[in-house]
């Protein structure tokens, strides 16, 4: 913060608390403040947050597994949204789905779209990792020269994927009319069904990811590879395979998030750019490289952004995430969960 001045853990936490209280006090003085709007902001904030969280988890997974920040992650989000949209439109245009599900064709098509976005993006991620990143990651990541190469390769990949999407889907915005039923009322807040889908699917996937990482053998391997590739090699883990799995899971999560977001806005080729930056902010706020941190950071950014946009000013909506990131970096540079487990000397 200042030169020669180091914050202790306790002081960091106190300052974070003071910042939170000032922020809460400030928004509570807003003329729009009442119980109704607060409930709405909470629900929307959590919904947006889980999406940021899913993308941020992918960024953190790739960071721990490959030692690089993947700057093309937003493009996987965008391609996932297009995959979901294409599959959904294909199913709805075809007559078959009406024949099997005459009443509920909308959400069945949407679920199939989500599934395809997840699987196709996962496989596409594995392909990208094998073909483009593998030759670079072999030489090392992180702060090495090769690591810098991968970061630049990430930017280039982002441009390539963006233009690929241009060629296939052209630059116009595509509306995603997912027919999911009428908005429902939760505790006095009218919520479109797309938001409910985001909430439920987001939490389910986050829970499944937690289960996968902590209870299954493959998850144990993923955590081991994330910590150290050399020791993982020595205990007999097929490290190159697991790096592909890590990249695939991260891209699959981004693709799923894309299809979840699609129906609330529009599907357009630029949509990956801003979500990458927001998810990056979420990962930093939660503690870079920490997976629970990424989810918590997503919630924090989502809630902060939504409440600022509602109570302070909606026209600067995209700036608030980075404001929060700057504040957290100033006060608590490790983020919420960024504490590394130190070895006893």
């Amino acid at each position: 913060m200042f030169k020669g001045f180091k914050l202790t853990r306790k002081l960091e936490n106190t300052l974070m608390l003071v910042f939170t209280l000032i922020f809460l006090g400030y928004i509570s003085m807003s003329p729009d403040m009442n119980l109704e709007s607060l409930k709405g902001v909470l629900i929307i904030g959590i919904t947006v947050g889980i999406i940021y969280g899913l993308v941020a988890v992918g960024i953190s997974l790739i960071y721990t597994g490959l030692d690089v920040v993947n700057f093309s992650h937003g493009e996987f989000f965008m391609l996932g949204a297009f995959t979901g949209l294409t599959v959904y439109n294909f199913l709805i245009d075809g007559e078959l789905i009406y024949a099997i599900f005459p009443d509920a064709y909308g959400w069945v098509g949407y679920v199939i779209g989500l599934f395809f976005a997840f699987v196709v993006m996962g496989l596409f991620g594995v392909l990208i990792e094998r073909v483009f990143l593998r030759p670079l990651t072999k030489k090392g990541g992180g702060y090495t020269v090769a690591g810098m190469g991968i970061i630049i390769c990430g930017f280039g990949l982002s441009v390539v994927l963006l233009n690929l999407a241009y060629i296939i889907w052209n630059p116009t915005a595509h509306p995603f009319h997912a027919d999911l039923g009428l908005p429902i009322n939760i505790g006095g807040v009218t919520l479109p069904m797309t938001y409910l889908w985001m909430l439920v699917t987001g939490f389910t996937v986050a829970g499944a990811l937690y289960f996968f990482l902590n209870k299954t053998k493959m998850g144990l391997g993923v955590r081991a590879v994330a910590h150290s590739k050399v020791i993982s090699n020595l205990v007999g883990i097929n490290v190159p395979l697991y790096i592909s799995i890590i990249f695939g899971i991260a891209c699959a999560l981004a693709g799923l998030a894309g299809t979840l977001v699609g129906p609330t806005y529009q599907v357009v080729v630029y949509m990956g750019y801003i979500i990458l930056l927001k998810a990056f902010a979420s990962a930093v706020v939660g503690g870079f490289g920490s997976l629970p941190g990424a989810i918590v950071g997503g919630f924090t950014v989502g809630l902060f952004e939504t409440s600022c946009a509602f109570f302070i000013s909606g026209s600067h909506k995209d700036a608030y995430a980075f404001l929060l990131m700057i504040v957290v970096l100033l006060i608590k540079p490790t983020g919420f969960f960024g504490v590394q487990v130190k070895m006893k000397a």
Partner: peptide, 24 residues
């Protein structure tokens, strides 16, 4: 199997998880 020098374990995992990884 190679056993590396002393401190090469997975510090953020429990002893049991470390052993399970050995039997991967």
């Amino acid at each position: 199997v190679q056993v590396t020098q002393g401190k090469d374990v997975f510090p953020a995992m429990t002893v049991l998880e470390n052993l399970k990884l050995g039997g991967f």
